[in-house]
Structures are given as C-alpha cells and as structure tokens.
C-alpha cells in the first residue's frame, strides 16, 4: 500500500463509517447536547435578568422606605414641636391665670381689710363717743367745783383719746 495512493478499502470504510458516526452522533449526541446547552444558556440569562430586576426592585423599595422614613421623621418633629408649643402656651396661660388670681385675692383681701378697718374705726368712734359721754357725765356729777381741776381733767381725757 503506497503512501500517497488512497486505498479503495480505506476510502470505502472511512466514508461509510464516518457518515454512520456522523448520523448517530448528530441524532443522539450533538442535537440533545446543543439543545441542552442552549436551554442552559437561556436559563442562565433569564436568571441573570431576574436577578437584575429583583435588584432594581429592591433599590426602589429601599428608596421608598427611606422616603417614608424621612416623612415620618418630619411628621414626628412637627408633632413634637406642636406639643412643645402647646405645653409652653399652657404654662404661660397658667402663669397668667395664677398672677391674675393672686392679684384678685390681694385686691379682695385689701377690700376686706379696708372694710374691717372702717368697721373698727366706726367702733372706736362709738366707743369714744360713749366714753366722752361717760366722762361728761362724771364731770357733770362732780359739779364742776374747780375750774382748774376741770381743765386738767378734760386735758387728761383728751390725751387718752389721742392715744387710742
């Protein structure tokens, strides 16, 4: 068998053997394999896409959460401020009320004191008048014997009056 002359037997077997191999492998090996590869590649691609979508959704969700959180924080601050203001106002009002009440009470007390004072003065005046009447009565009863003594007596009584 020569080196560069193709042998008829080898050509025959190679041709039909290779065609048979080609047929069997295409039908039972390469087609299912290539189909499986395509399927796997597309499933990987889909999984990657799904992961990307999920990531985007997560990011959106997070942004939304943060927005909600910021809003809530703002609201809380507003509520706190309002409460603070309200309490301050209430304290202020209470203080004003207290001051007013105190003033009223003082006023009332003053009025009472004035009334009491007036009543006391009136009482004193009545007493003085009574005493004067008594003194006058005693003087008149002594018959007014001595002028000088009378005068002294009157002075004494007056002195007593002033002291009261």
């Amino acid at each position: 068998m020569d080196l560069i002359t193709p042998g008829s037997g080898l050509i025959f077997w190679q041709l039909f053997g290779f065609l048979g191999l080609l047929f069997i492998l295409i039908k039972f090996a390469w087609k299912p394999m290539l189909a499986a590869l395509d399927e796997r590649e597309s499933s990987i691609e889909n999984a990657l896409k799904a992961a990307e979508t999920a990531r985007n959704e997560m990011a959106n969700l997070k942004a939304e959460n943060e927005k909600l959180l910021a809003e809530a924080r703002l609201e809380r601050d507003t509520i706190l401020k309002k409460a603070h203001d309200a309490s301050a106002k209430m304290i202020e009002e209470a203080k004003a009320e207290a001051v007013k009440t105190g003033a009223q009470m003082i006023e009332n007390a003053k009025a009472v004191i004035e009334t009491e004072k007036k009543a006391a003065l009136a009482d004193v005046k009545t007493q003085v008048a009574t005493l004067t009447l008594e003194v006058t009565e005693k003087l008149l009863r002594k018959n007014l014997s001595e002028d000088k003594a009378q005068k002294e007596l009157v002075d004494e009584f007056i002195k007593d009056l002033k002291l009261n």
Binding site: L25, F28, W30, P32, A36, L37
Partner: peptide, 17 residues
C-alpha cells in the same frame, strides 16, 4: 468517540440542563 459523546448526551437527558 461515540461512547464518550453518547454518555455525555445521556447526562443531559437524565439531568436536564
């Protein structure tokens, strides 16, 4: 070649992609 290729293809048939 055929035994290797067919057993490889069998793997995909059994287990999917």
């Amino acid at each position: 070649l055929a035994s290797l290729a067919l057993s490889a293809a069998n793997h995909y048939k059994k287990n999917g992609a």
